[in-house]
Amino acid sequence: MSGYFKELISGTKSLFIGLGITGKYFFEPVVTLQYPHEHLEMTPRYRGHIELIPNEETGEPKCIACGMCQKGCPSGCIEVKGEKREGVKGKVVTKYILNFTTCSLCGQCVESCKFGALRFSKEYNLASPRKEDFIFDLIEKLKEKS
């Protein structure tokens, strides 16, 4: 019998304590960010889709189309083509297609590039109802940026 009352009282008390906690939070400021009215800065290491790094002087991509990233990509979503040009050492990249629909953002392409020609972008506002919109031409993108 005493156990019954003890449980009744402690139980009721626990219920009121619960109300107290949620009641307190009711008056505290909200913690959410009002996306899309506000935006977060991405951290420096944030992995968006990859992008080509331009050469500081010429603005052309640093990439020499060695194909290492294409080989190292687990999802096979990179397609690089290059050609030899006169007066330029190595090859010049003519086509760099990233199929972002299958990219797993693992970072192996960035790691395998020995020429420092790849990095992650900070783009995360990517939404589209069409699959084709995620097949990026990175050379195009680089041009647009500069």
């Binding site: 420096p44 693992c106 790691e111």
Partner: peptide
């Protein structure tokens, strides 16, 4: 995120170390 670059499906460890 500030170390691995991703928030959920991390791919951070490498053979012999970390990214």
């Amino acid at each position: 995120e500030s170390v691995t670059g991703s928030r959920l499906t991390y791919c951070y460890f490498r053979f012999g170390g970390v990214y």
